[in-house]
Amino acid sequence: MKQKRLKIESNQSLNETVYEMKLSGIQDAEIRPGQFVNLKLEGLFLRRPISVCDAEGDLLTLVYRTVGKGTDQMSRMEPGEEIDTLLELGNGYDRSAAGERPLLIGGGVGVPPLYALAKHLIRSGKEVSVVLGFNTASDVFYEEEFRALGAAVTVTTVDGSYGRKGFVTDVLPEAYSFFYACGPMPMLKAVYHKTNCSGQFSLEERMGCGFGACMGCSVSTKTGTKRVCKEGPVFFKEDLAWDD
């Protein structure tokens, strides 16, 4: 864990509720795909945990949806403002498990953390497929960004207004070596039951500290009680007790 004051370089909307914020000043922080940062916002007591979309050089990219006071406030922040940030939080995805043809499955605001993962996997020569699920056409974001990395991208919308109609689990490819999934809990559980190889899930939970001190975000796994913020947020499929 590191604490830094990061400076907002840009903060723009990608659609009605999703924003992309770029911050500079991460310097020597070693940020892995799947990790998150924890932001101290003016006037709010608890920090706000946001997954890392990308970290390259000195620049951190966060893509977030406005769901409450904290993210609303973030969406109104201007370039030049600074945010007290805890970095390098959580374990991140295990890229060594990917195999040759990994599949990345993202739903809604669960899409962003898969971006840096796709980038790293493609750089290491993997053949990456990405399935991105949204509710409707106006919700879709980052499709082109994933294509630009060289991933094979399939987009689904629940109402069929864009891409393939249905859920991400309706369009999973025939063969893949490993999967990584991030999204709402019903999607994750559907993926859990529909996939037939090993994979990893990124979980979300309300957090107190975000670095393992308060036990606010614990989850029961087959290998004991784990903290989503510390041992997670990424868990192997085999650890999760979602069978019933």
Partner: peptide, 11 residues
């Protein structure tokens, strides 16, 4: 869970 909630001036 949830075990944590934000409050004015605390949690």
């Amino acid at each position: 869970t949830p075990r944590i909630a934000e409050c004015p001036g605390g949690m």
